[in-house]
Design a binder for these strands. Structure first.
Lengths: 231, 231
DNA sequence: CTAATTATTGCACCCGATGCAAAATTCCAT
DNA sequence: ATGGAATTTTGCATCGGGTGCAATAATTAG
């Protein structure tokens, strides 16, 4: 690792290496939080994501190697894989925020309204909402996804990760508030809502929050189905 | 390549290698079709898929190497990649059937019924239907997908491949028969219908055709939305 | 300041995937 | 059938992603 002077005192290194400055500033971002270890970890993670996104934006996904990203971030290539499972994860800044416990409980107990689709919407909103800090990275990730379709697999990746949890969740709710839909279908429906919201957000020039476009996504879905029913 | 005697006459090789027999029988499957070249290509492809699926079912996805698959199929590893872009493709027996021209034309012209969801259903049906020969391979692929979630990316992969085409299609139809839904959303909706149908087919013990379960998938979707509307 | 915990790094290694050119095979015209 | 054109197979070299392992360095706790 790059030696910051031994105990974090006096970061007076005159070195012009951009990496160091970036890490330093990232370190200042959240100054009074957790131990040094935790802060550095967050900082490095951020630096790696930024490096990955910048390089891919400039050269394209396949032309960028993990070695380049690590170099730009001032870190050993081996360390890269301490932070991400794959190159793509870094480019996407994959955030692994879980569903909050109370949202889950509410949903399982028949959700805020008892109407499945509406309650699903609440669930998805909680997934779309909190990433306040990573906002700008999600934006960049969206842009990159357009140019590098391979990255779209993110949503599937995400789905795989949470599928078992979601399925549990659906089955649990089913007992208190019966419905017919297959759990697998609902899982994809969640992905559909997330993705549609994000795309709408992108099309709106990234104004506001992704979650702001969730009602629109639901409305689209309802529209497609309703038009079929009325005729 | 394994030398079958020089001109395809006299396949009287007494070699007990299972590979050869398998290829030979596969060759007999469609005896009067195309040239020898074309038939061998199909046959080899089939042998490779079978080998891949068998090995993965036995050892798991990560424990199976392209080298093993090629060996089992009696083919050079380099040749493997003449047939598939990736190991996963072989395991899935990725079929790249396009939409037939008339189905496309009908859909673009406002589809059989003019109701978007119903017409989408027709479109999806044409994707689910024809793979008569590969039926059994799709079954195996479904089973493997349960044990190896990585393979789920297939649908995304498929989506990526056809997305531009689908988007064109949707936009073209939009001009003759306006609707509000975003093309991106409809694309995912297609994936949802395909996947849901396949899962339903699997849950039904692979009886009949995947397409048989498409109406059920649509019904589920309608149910979710309609229940939200009525209350 | 020391000892325990945790993170970084280098190294060796495996495998998936691609480009290239030589050898083998199939096709086609005569 | 036979020779040359077109296409496929194959070996070889190479690159890059990703992992296990053990040594080293940094952080933390006492």
């Amino acid at each position: 690792m790059v030696p910051t002077s031994s105990r974090e005192t006096a970061p007076a290194d005159a070195e012009p290496r951009p990496t160091l400055r970036e890490l330093a500033s990232a370190l200042e971002g959240t100054p009074a939080e957790q131990g040094l270890r935790e802060r550095k970890k967050r900082a490095r993670r951020g630096v790696l994501i930024d490096a990955a996104q910048r390089l891919v934006a400039e050269h394209g996904l396949d032309a960028v190697t993990v070695e380049m990203i690590s170099a730009e971030a001032g870190v050993s290539p081996r360390t890269f894989f301490n932070y991400f499972e794959s190159k793509d994860d870094a480019v996407l800044g994959a955030d692994d925020t879980d569903l909050s416990e109370d949202v889950v409980r509410t949903f399982v107990d028949g959700g805020p309204t008892g109407r499945l689709l509406t309650d699903l919407q609440v669930l998805v909103a909680s997934l779309l909402a909190p990433h306040g800090e990573a906002h700008v990275r999600v934006m960049r990730a969206m842009d990159l996804m357009q140019q590098e379709p391979r990255l779209l697999q993110r949503h599937v990746f995400w789905m795989e990760r949470h599928k078992s949890r979601l399925v549990e969740l659906f089955e649990a709710r089913r007992e208190t508030t019966p419905f017919n839909a297959d759990a697998e279908m609902l899982t994809i429906l969640v992905v559909l809502l997330i993705r549609t919201s994000l795309v709408a957000w992108e099309n709106a020039g990234f104004t506001g929050d992704p979650a702001d476009h969730l009602p629109g996504a639901v409305a689209q879905l309802i529209d497609v189905v309703a038009r079929d029913l009325e005729s």
